[in-house]
Design a protein around this nucleic acid. Structure first.
Lengths: 365, 365
DNA sequence: GAGATTCTGTTAAACGTTTTACAGTTAATC
DNA sequence: GATTAACTGTAAAACGTTTAACAGAATCTC
C-alpha cells in the first residue's frame, strides 16, 4: 500500500466518477445526485481521503485562513481575544494562524509579511504601536482586516474595534474621587500607545477638574518585574499616594508586586484600581476593584466586522467600533470617611488624621 | 494597473530570467550568479512580489506549518507554551497555526482534522484526555509530532514532553509535612487526566506514609467559578483543613476564590500550595508558595524534539522527555510551631491548641 | 587538446484542486 | 412533437510554484 496520501483522483476512480464531481460533493458548489454523493462519500471514507487545502487554495484563489497578529500571547488579554477569535472562526470553517510581535516593530513587520504570504482571507491585528507597519498599508484595500485595541481612534485605514479609553480612565478616576480620594497616581506601561494615552487623559482630566492639577502618571513598561522595580523605587523616594490607578493589566501586576514588597496593605494604606478583570483579582481576601474591558465582546465585534468585510469586499468606509469598559467594584478602594478628609478637602471637619497613617496625607509632589 | 498579485512569472519577465531562476533565488536551493540574483531581487521588490505559499507547498510537498492544538488558550499555561513555540518556530521560518479543543474530545477530533488538512510539517498537541483522538493514530508515523503535558508517560505513540507529575505532587506534600502539617486536602480539576492522577498519586503516597491514610482529593473541574462553588460548598459541610494543595492553576484560583469568599486567611487559618507560577501569585501580601512547572523548558524541549523528528524522519523510537517541577517558597504555608502539634503528632508536647483556631485541628473526614 | 566535470541557467512537467466550457438527459413550454 | 430550459455530469485547462531533465559554457584532468 502506497504511503502517498490519496488525492481527489483516487476517490474519483474508486467512486467511478470524475474528479469534478468529487470536488462538487465536498465543496457543495454544484448539486450532485444523492446516490452518487453517497458513493463519493463512501469512497473518500474508505481511502481516508482528506482535501489538500494548499491545492484548493491555489486553484480557487479563495481560502479559509484568518491571520491574527498580537503583541504577545502571554498577555491574557490578547490570549483571550485570540481564543475567542479562533472559536468563532472555526464555527465558520476558518483556520487561524497566529503570530506575535513581542511589542517590537520590526518583528511585527516581519511576522506580518509571513502571515500575508499565506494570502489569508482576513486579518485581525493588534498593532504594537500607533504607527502601523508599512506592509499593512500596502494591502489595506485588498485584504479585509480589522485593527483592535492599540489604535488611535482617528486612524481610519480600516475597521477598528476599541474600547472608549477616555471613558475607561474617567470611570476609574471618578470612582476614586467619589470616595473622597484626591491623592491619586496613575500607572501605565507606555504612555505613547494610543489607548493608554487616552486612558491617562481621561483619568487626568477628571482628577484635574476636582483637584486643580493633573495627577502624576508613572511609566512602568510592559514587563511585570521591571515595572515593579520602577514603582518600588518610586515609592521609596515619594510619599505614599492615597490611591493608584493601574491602566494596564501588566501594570496592575507591577503595582501590586511593589506594594506587596513594601508590605503596604490595600486598601487600608493605599487604594488600588486594577485594569482588566481576571480570575485572580477576585481570588484574594480583598478583591480588586477593576476597570473591566469587555474582552469577549471585543473579539466578537472584531469577528463580525471582519466577516462583513469578507463578504462585502472593501467597498465601504472604514468604520470604528467603540465598546465601553465598566467598573467592577470590589474591595480595594477605601471609602474615606468625613473624619478623614482628603487633603484638598475644603469642607471636611478638622478631625485628626487616622492613627498611624500620617504618611497617607502628605502631598505627592 | 492590475489588481492581481504579481507571480513568479512577472518577476522572471522583468528580470529577464526564467521562473526557475527566480525560484532558486528565493529558495536558495541552487546557487545563482550574484548580478542575476540582484536583478531578481530588484524586480521582486519593484513589483511587490510575495511568494504564494499555497502554490509552493502544493508543488514541493514540503511546507512550513507547525500545527498546535491545545485545550484552551485562555489557560495561561497553554498560552505560554504556544507563545514560546511560535517564537521558536518563527526563528526557523515556520508558521504556527493554532487551534483549541476546549477540553472536548469531539471538538478535538474535528480541530485536529482541520489542522491535518494543511499537511503541516509538524504537530504539537496537548491532548485533552488520555485517550488520544483517532486521527492522531492514523498519521502517527507519517507526521512528526510531540505530545505535551496531558499524556500518560507509558503512552509511547510519539515523543512526549511532560513534567514528573508524581514528583510534583510529592514536593508539595513533603513541604507541608516538613512544616508540621498533617491535615491536608488535595484539589484537582479532573483526576482522570493523566498528569493530574499522577500528581494526586504522588502527594497522596507521601501524605499516607506520614499520616497513615491518604488525603482527601476534591475534583473542582476546569472552570474557575464552578470550582470555587464546589470547594465553597465543601468548606461549609466540612471542618477547615489545615492545608490545601491545588494541583492545577485553575484549581488554585478556585480554591483561593472560595477561601476569600469565606474570609479565611492564608496562611494563618489554612495553608495553601498553588500550582504553576504566575506573576499574580507574588503580587499579593502573602505570596503563594507554588509548584512551578518549567513552562519555557517544556516548550523548548517540545520544539527540540519536533525539529529532530522533522529532520530525521520517523525512523527512531518514540522517546519521553520528563522535566522536573520545583517548589517556589513564599508565604502561604504556615510553619507549625512545636506548641501547635499536628493532629497525628506522636511526640509533640501536649501544649494547648492555638487560640481561636480549634477548628483547625479537627479531623477531616 | 580531448574528455570529463562543474557551473549556471532554461524548459517543461508536475503538484491536487477548482472551474469553465461543453455534452447528454430529462422536463417544461408552446 | 419541436424548441427551450433545467439538470447533472465530464473533460481539460488553469492556479503559482518547484524540480527533473537537459544544455551550454567554463574549468579541470591527464
Amino acid at each position: 500500500m502506497s504511503r502517498r496520501k490519496p488525492s481527489i483522483r483516487d476517490v474519483a476512480a474508486l467512486a467511478g466518477v470524475s474528479t469534478a464531481t468529487v470536488s462538487n460533493v465536498f465543496s457543495g458548489r454544484k448539486p450532485v445526485n444523492d446516490d452518487l454523493r453517497e458513493n463519493v462519500r463512501k469512497a473518500a471514507e474508505a481511502l481516508g481521503y482528506q482535501i489538500d487545502r494548499a491545492a484548493s487554495q491555489l486553484r480557487s484563489g479563495r481560502n479559509r485562513i484568518i491571520a491574527v497578529l498580537v503583541p504577545d500571547l502571554i498577555d491574557t488579554f490578547f490570549a483571550t481575544i485570540v481564543s475567542r477569535l479562533e472559536t468563532l472562526a472555526f464555527e465558520q470553517d476558518y483556520d487561524v494562524i497566529v503570530a506575535s510581535s513581542h511589542d517590537n516593530r520590526s518583528v511585527e513587520s516581519s511576522r506580518l509579511k509571513a502571515l500575508l504570504s499565506w494570502r489569508p482571507a482576513g486579518l485581525v491585528i493588534v498593532p504594537c504601536s500607533h504607527v502601523l507597519p508599512a506592509e499593512l498599508l500596502d494591502v489595506k484595500d485588498r485584504l479585509p482586516m480589522v485593527l483592535v485595541d492599540r489604535v488611535s481612534t482617528g486612524n481610519a485605514i480600516a475597521d477598528t474595534v476599541t474600547i472608549d479609553n477616555i471613558d475607561a480612565g474617567e470611570i476609574a478616576a471618578r470612582h476614586l474621587l467619589e470616595r473622597g480620594h484626591r491623592d491619586i497616581v496613575l500607572a501605565v506601561s507606555h504612555s505613547s500607545f494610543p489607548p493608554l494615552a487616552e486612558r491617562v487623559e481621561g483619568a487626568s482630566k477628571v482628577v484635574a477638574s476636582y483637584v486643580g492639577r493633573r495627577p502624576r502618571a508613572l511609566e512602568l513598561g510592559s514587563n511585570v518585574a521591571a515595572g515593579a522595580k520602577i514603582f518600588s523605587d518610586w515609592l521609596e523616594r515619594n510619599p505614599l499616594p492615597g490611591a493608584v490607578i493601574a491602566l494596564t493589566n501588566v501594570t496592575t501586576l507591577s503595582v501590586l508586586s511593589a506594594l506587596a514588597q513594601h508590605r503596604i496593605e490595600i486598601p487600608s494604606k493605599t487604594s488600588v484600581i486594577a485594569f482588566d478583570d481576571y480570575a485572580w483579582m477576585s481570588a484574594r481576601n480583598t478583591g480588586l476593584t477593576a476597570v473591566r474591558q469587555p474582552v469577549d465582546d471585543i473579539a466578537s465585534m472584531a469577528w463580525n466586522r471582519l466577516t462583513l468585510r469578507m463578504e462585502e469586499g472593501a467597498r465601504r468606509r472604514a468604520e470604528p467600533t467603540v465598546l465601553n469598559a465598566s467598573l467592577v467594584i470590589r474591595a480595594s478602594v477605601k471609602e474615606l470617611s468625613p473624619s478623614e478628609p482628603a487633603e484638598f478637602g475644603k469642607d471636611g471637619p478638622p478631625g485628626e488624621a487616622a492613627p498611624g497613617r500620617g504618611e497617607d496625607v502628605k502631598k505627592i509632589h
